[in-house]
Design a protein around this nucleic acid. Structure first.
Lengths: 328, 328
DNA sequence: CTGTTAGCGCCTTCAC
DNA sequence: GTGAAGGCGCTAACAG
């Protein structure tokens, strides 16, 4: 069923069908419109999006590239993004780079070939190469692992402030021996969160003990390994800031292995705020990222005109206090 | 940059460019081919997939519809599916129905308009309506929540056998008072797993205590609520089979709330086998679904010729024993 | 082996 | 307000 069928049924030309389907670019008489609408209904016509895309140049499809969709944080973010887009009748192409920069580039290229209208990009690291997209004139918005000084638009929370707020909360509890599980150094996210922790420590004139400053992947396994290293030492910190939620879950497992009670022996606070921290034992205090807001902001940026200039949008985090830091 | 540019550069016709790009349908002289290849390189040409799709009728895009991508099981499955597809140069459209049948249908329609080559479908419930896809002549493969007696192809594990194996393992431990957290009755998955549990109980001539048979959503919250109900009673079972992993995580939280030790006071075994069960406290024994195999099988079915007939593929589960059922 | 050309389904400018 | 016609970029007959 194409427009030709509709036109024949309605006794008009295909152009008119086009006008009523897209509400433009030319006006249509009320009576003709109704006749066309009826014909569309009668023959069961649905426009072919592919053909529309080819003719008009806009595909109504957006690409999302994530390092790993099975990471709960990215999955929840993808959920929100898809929701925002699909209510606008847009469609989301999912690209999972499996933390590989090579695949990341391959996906980007595949998406570009498909004439996507824009790309939501969460890079494997913080200096992602989205030049191909820019050259092709498609909008790019970076999420999460962004360079907020960079030349492409981005949406993220203030990682420095969030980490500082979390650490300050720990300090407010009276803890003075506070460690950190930092993230991979090649991620600005990790650096910023570490910076936030550091600044809170400095502001409170608290000593930073190097052996309580570990580095780990942003993964459960990373947190587990770091926790094991930490707990193998004789002296423990009273509290610890883990730079992402996955790490925190891993640290919890390590703590259980070593018979270390949370929060009695060790308080924990973390960053991100997916369901994982709510349903862990104990529930983990966390800096919550407002995923819905982030998704909405990202789509807003993405759908602006091409020449809109780069914007670095910062969303507000909130602190969610739970058992793991002594709250209840 | 279109084929015209390439043709001009290479001094050939556009048809020849097409032939070398797609390796057919007509042969091309070696020398010409090389000239064309060089020209493609020189002008930096990449084919427009949209145009290819329109002209050829195959888009190279597949749709995936899931009830909720932020559910770890679906997210891990999506990860595997995307991986399989994208190594074939195919692209995945992600549709998240948010557990709504209305959105499910809307997504299906959107995908169909985009001329997808096939659809991977995980329905909100077990009698999903994929008729529109079938009418449009696009392949459908149902995953997970499937009706393996139905008329569309599917891939899944043997839920009955898996649940029975899990329950038998519990029985092998010497437990006799074994309860179940069943899933929503409108899902065949849930019914099958319940059936497997039941048959193991029957085979061992173990009594089924109704108050230890609860029903809950396939979610952490569902498991939490069910656990609270269960633990509010005075007499507890010795062991319990939870019908999915999310539920198990919730039950664990409820157990912690009530000071019930796992596995000392209550052994738990569950179904699915994502990272969640590995990184919970304690680690949860589970029937593992072979996600990679499932993904591969699904894509294989999806890319068969249209008239290939319906196939219900069953993948082999495996039992992963961990602390929660007394193993270690 | 290579070139010409008619579509694929739709959008949109241009006449009427 | 409506219709005719020329693309969008590519594929695949059909001729040479």
């Amino acid at each position: 069923m194409t427009r030709v069928d509709v036109a024949r049924e309605a006794g008009t030309s295909v152009a008119v069908v086009s006008y009523v389907v897209n509400g433009g670019p030319r006006p249509v008489a009320k009576s003709t419109r109704e006749r066309v609408l009826a014909a569309i209904e009668a023959v069961g016509y649905t426009p072919n999006s592919i053909a529309q895309a080819l003719a008009s140049g806009v595909s109504g499809a957006y690409g999302l590239i994530v390092p790993d969709i099975s990471n709960p944080f990215f999955a929840e973010l993808a959920h929100e993004l898809e929701e925002v887009l699909s209510t606008h009748g847009k469609v989301l192409l999912l690209g999972d780079s499996s933390e590989s920069k090579v695949r990341e580039q391959a996906l980007l290229k595949m998406f570009l070939q498909r004439q996507i209208d824009g790309i939501l990009f969460i890079g494997v690291d913080s200096d992602a190469d989205v030049q191909p997209a820019i050259d092709a004139g498609v909008q790019v918005v970076m999420l999460d692992r962004v360079d907020h000084r960079g030349s492409v638009s981005s949406v993220a929370v203030d990682n420095v402030a969030g980490a500082r707020a979390a650490t300050e909360h720990l300090i407010g509890h009276g803890y003075t021996r506070i460690g950190i599980i930092a993230g991979p150094p090649h991620l600005f996210t990790a650096g910023d969160r570490r910076g936030g922790w550091q600044s809170a420590m400095d502001a409170a004139a608290l000593p930073v003990e190097p052996r309580w400053c570990l580095e780990a992947d942003f993964s459960r396994r990373g947190g587990l390994d770091a926790g094991r290293r930490l707990f193998a030492a004789d002296a423990l910190p009273e509290a610890i800031f883990t730079s992402n939620e996955q790490q925190a879950v891993g640290v919890l497992v390590a703590a259980a292995e070593h018979g270390i009670r949370v929060p009695e022996d060790l308080a924990i606070i973390t960053f991100d705020g997916t369901d994982d921290s709510e349903f862990s034992i104990p529930a983990i205090s966390t800096v919550m990222q407002p995923l819905k807001d982030i998704a909405q902001a990202a789509v807003d940026l993405l759908t602006r005109p091409r020449d809109a200039g780069v914007v670095h949008k910062t969303c507000n985090f909130s602190l969610r206090l739970r058992t793991s830091c002594g709250q209840h």
